[in-house]
Design a binder for these strands. Structure first.
Length: 222
DNA sequence: CTCCCGATAT
DNA sequence: ATATCAGGAG
């Protein structure tokens, strides 16, 4: 079932997984979550804005947004059109503005305007699914209940041969089984760094990738 | 599966 | 011209 790599290691074996993890830590010792925030609510807002948008653009918007809107009530009571303009550069701005108002109203109705700190509570909030919940839990509360599966983790998991699933939840389950729990958050951050810098969607730079000997998708003849 | 948004890379 | 960008809902 499992195939052998140029390194002689089997795809999906503990040896391959650990080799990739080790190299990711070596490559990106300082990897962290790149959205700027100082409170759980700020992370709650920034993460919703991050859909299909670079972190850089989100940070450019939140720099002033967080000065203007300081509480869940500020977002819930915001004027839709005004909030749209405040977040416009992040894209999907009508949907995101509405989603911020609705999700923050939900925080007011159920949690006194605070962001809850459990997976079960977070995924009940409209606009919050497991990816966003995992980001909030891991980065604002230090709670690691799952594996962040965003567009990069989805893509690299398949390239590494760690999952053949298309359903995000099934990919997350595969990763939780393969990667030791203490590495879930840190490895997710580093997979994302590598996905941006080297293993990008359009034209992965396999020839200069130090993971290539452990990667069944490496295309070294380019 | 499509839609939401527009800038940017290829 | 087309795919992609730290997604989620209908």
């Amino acid at each position: 079932m499992s195939s052998s790599l140029s390194s002689g290691v089997q795809v999906g074996s503990g040896e391959q997984v650990q080799a990739i993890i080790d190299e990711l830590y070596r490559l990106y010792p300082e990897a962290r979550y790149d959205l700027d925030f100082t409170t759980p609510l700020e992370l709650f807002v920034a993460t919703q804005l991050a859909a299909q948008c670079t972190d850089e653009r989100v940070n450019a918007v939140t720099k002033t947004l967080f000065q203007k809107y300081r509480s869940a009530a500020d977002y819930a009571g915001a004027n839709q059109e005004e909030l749209e303009q405040d977040i416009k550069p992040t894209g999907f701005y009508r949907k995101k503005a509405n989603q911020l108002r609705v999700s923050c109203q939900y925080l007011l109705d159920h949690y006194g305007g605070e962001v809850p700190g459990t997976m079960a509570e977070l995924v009940r909030i409209p606009g919050i699914a497991r990816k966003t919940a995992n980001v909030i839990l891991g980065n604002a509360f230090g709670v690691v209940d799952g594996f962040i599966v965003d567009t990069h983790v989805d893509r690299l998991s398949k390239r590494f041969g760690w999952s053949k699933q298309n359903d995000i939840v099934k990919i997350e389950r595969d990763l939780m089984a393969l990667v030791p729990r203490e590495h879930w958050l840190e490895v997710a951050h580093r997979i994302i760094y590598h996905g941006r810098a080297v293993c990008n969607a359009r034209k992965p730079l396999c020839a200069q990738c130090t993971l290539a000997s452990y990667c069944p998708s490496a295309m070294l003849d380019q």
